[in-house]
Design a protein around this nucleic acid. Structure first.
Lengths: 214, 214
DNA sequence: TAGATTGTTAATCGATTAACAATC
DNA sequence: TAGATTGTTAATCGATTAACAATC
């Protein structure tokens, strides 16, 4: 099977398709045309068809797309048909927030442990998942199949911890630190930069105000 | 002053420039060329110069860019030279995590209050900032200049709350709910979809595995 | 002045949209 | 069959990169 290169732009839209199809499925909708979906999602029908056809022909002429089927197929593309074990490094507020966010589990992301340096958190558990101390990390990684590590630790610690994780076989990092990670290219890094997001909001506020002045 | 339309792509890169320039500033670097910065940031020098020239000529031929000046100017473009009061709706884990993230304050984002429906949180405060009950919200908005509302509440409540906020003059929403908001177009919405981000990570893991099979 | 590096125009590349033949 | 709607090719649009004259 030959795969053409899928662009970043397309990939970034897949979760959104998945989300809308999930909503339609819950609402009991059986089929939908690219045109109807495009109106709901505020994109062009053309883009939807182009995006989907990167992965195969999921629709049927004259009918549209079967919601349940398309939802499942996009799920597979996104890897949601498999489970992914993950850990959280940094059991502060953000780490705990992620740990409590049970929805991830529905998509197959299973939290196996949290880690922290703070001895006050020792022995604590969240939704039944234990918080461990950082010095147990290497041992834990050797005895558990962990795929993803979420980093909710301060910028100053992140390089050291990421190196440790990579040295122990972690191949995917979900990075919340306010910093880009420079890791071997077989390690996948997905960063969530909250302050970048807030700054974009602020940019738009400023621009709006300027426009009003005129 | 005439402004050409700035593309979303450019805007989304500004916070990252700002971050790198901040780091350089802290490291005591006085000036930097687009070429040196491009190597640090893994983008082309051409792109840096193009991006910056959307907003004006901040550099000097034969010299490069003054780090402090450029940092300040990008800060202004992003609206970081002004303070922005904000509130958090939903004082659960994520809301508390944001409230505790003091770095926002350094960029001029001042948290004025949190709101929740949970009576157990009544009277609580975080970094000296009070958690209030939702029925105090409208009154609070009328008596305080609030620019931004961060929504860290469940999907099921988000439409209702967003409408209430907009009805009471909020013009900028930082949305963490797993849902797109459809609001009047004079309201700025910036969404952080954590599960979308996790799914992109998962997509890349799956693709990596497929490639290995061959 | 000579060297460096910007600002900016032109060329290229990629992504989005339009159009329509294929087909259910 | 006629109508609807996909899959896909072609056209357009926009964003990135390359090149270089301007200038510090």
């Amino acid at each position: 099977m030959e795969h053409r290169k899928i662009s970043r732009a397309v990939i970034s839209r897949l979760p959104r398709y998945h989300r809308y199809l999930g909503d339609l499925l819950e609402a009991g909708v059986e089929r939908i045309s690219s045109n109807d979906l495009s109106k709901k999602m505020n994109v062009t029908a053309s883009q939807i068809r182009q995006d989907l056809n990167n992965f195969g022909g999921f629709g049927q002429q004259g009918y549209g797309y079967n919601v349940k089927y398309l939802y499942t197929e996009i799920g597979k593309i996104l890897g949601l048909n498999k489970t992914h074990n993950f850990i959280i490094i940094g059991a502060g507020n953000l780490g705990q927030a992620l740990a409590n966010y049970a929805s991830f589990e529905k998509s197959g992301f299973i939290l196996k442990s949290l880690f922290d340096v703070n001895p006050r958190l020792e022995g604590m558990s969240i939704r039944g998942i234990q918080v461990r101390m950082m010095d147990e990390l290497v041992d834990f990684l050797q005895n558990n199949e962990i795929e993803i590590a979420a980093l909710t630790i301060p910028k100053s610690k992140v390089v050291e911890v990421a190196d440790l994780l990579v040295a122990n076989g972690i191949k995917a990092i979900w990075n919340f630190a306010h910093m880009d990670l420079d890791l071997p290219k077989d390690v996948i890094v997905e960063s969530v930069h909250l302050s970048d997001s807030l700054m974009q909001l602020s940019y738009n506020i400023s621009r709006r105000k300027e426009a009003k002045k005129k």
